[in-house]
Design a binder for these strands. Structure first.
Lengths: 124, 124
DNA sequence: CCAATATTGATAATTAATTATCATTTATCA
DNA sequence: TGATAAATGATAATTAATTATCAATATTGG
């Protein structure tokens, strides 16, 4: 990643503009508004490089093999995953501690919480 | 699933004996102690049938495309996933409510929590 | 016990996300 | 501006879990 290109600018700007993790397809579709003939291979290459460079983070969901990406450096948070449209949303306010205890002997390093249900648009 | 076979008995007994979700490979290895030349295809077929029959449930983990299975009907609980050995463990005691609020307009239907870290065996 | 057929085991096929390839285009710097 | 090499876009290849295929085996009801 040695040169500035409009493709990479558009991809990073897309991620910065949305306050939720985006799939590679979502990135492609949004960034194509700025760079119409952007290809999916460039999206994959760019997100890999941004991840390596520490600028974005990959988000994985249980049962979904595709990756989503969000800007790195946000405070601790979790996500809401709409079962209808498949979009992922950011949720505020996890204290960092959950009222679930791990038994003696286990060393917890992190926790992930995923809420599932319907987003406002799909609920109506 | 119309006939009783030693293969399916061994597979279900394996899942019942462990109090944690098992991958198809773990099921295969454990059940082979009872049915030595058990094949992986039979494991896949059996778990699919047990899921359809409502006897077991598939568990998915973020970033791991392979499925794990546990006996259905347990009370609400979550899991601990060891990053070293990859084994999944059952955790007691989720109140069902977390101290994370979803914004207005979202309808939460369920939540999943995954703890990651080291299990007792891998910690030492 | 026997016939009918469900099940098994070995392995080929599938599937979907991601990565590699390569000719063409483009950013950068002298 | 022009040379150089990085980046792009189209698409082929890869990868790993799961499913399908099919001949051989085993269960079950009579």
């Amino acid at each position: 990643m040695e040169r500035k290109t409009k493709q990479r600018n558009a991809i990073l700007a897309t991620l910065a503009a949305e306050n939720r993790p985006l799939s590679t397809q979502e990135i492609l579709e949004n960034a194509q508004k700025k760079v119409p003939n952007l290809g999916i291979a460039t999206v994959y290459r760019a997100v890999r490089e941004f991840v390596d460079a520490g600028q974005i983070t990959a988000i994985n969901l249980p049962g979904d093999p595709s990756q989503r990406y969000e800007i790195k450096g946000k405070h601790h948070h979790h996500h809401f995953w709409c079962r209808a449209c498949g979009k992922l949303f950011e949720l505020e306010g996890c204290s960092g501690k959950l009222n679930i205890k791990t038994p003696k002997g286990f060393k917890t390093e992190l926790h992930e919480v995923i809420f599932r249900g319907l987003c406002p648009k799909c609920k109506t």
